[in-house]
Amino acid sequence: MAEVLIKKEACRGCQICVEVCPTEVLAFDEAEQKAVVKNATDCIACLSCTYICPSTAISQQDFHSVKNFYRDLDFSVKAKRYL
C-alpha cells in the first residue's frame, strides 16, 4: 500500500493537492492551514498530488514504480549527481 507523506514545514496551504486527488485521500486542516492525509488506504499512487505540489511537500513511499519510457534518460542519470 502506498504511503503518503506530507512535510508540514514545506506545505504552503494551497489546497491544490486536495482538489487534484481522485480518491479523496487528502484533506485540508483549516486550523493549521496545511494539507493532511485523511484516508491513507484509498491512495492509488497516481502521484498527481506529488507532481502538482508547488512546494515539493508531498512524497510517496512503498508504491509500485511504473517505468516511464518517455523520460529524458540522460537527465535522469544526471539528476542523481546533483549536489
Partner: peptide
C-alpha cells in the same frame, strides 16, 4: 530536490 516554495513563508490562498 525541493522547490523554492518549500522555503518561502508566503501563504498560498
Amino acid at each position: 530536490e525541493e522547490s523554492i516554495c518549500a522555503k518561502c513563508n508566503r501563504l498560498m490562498k
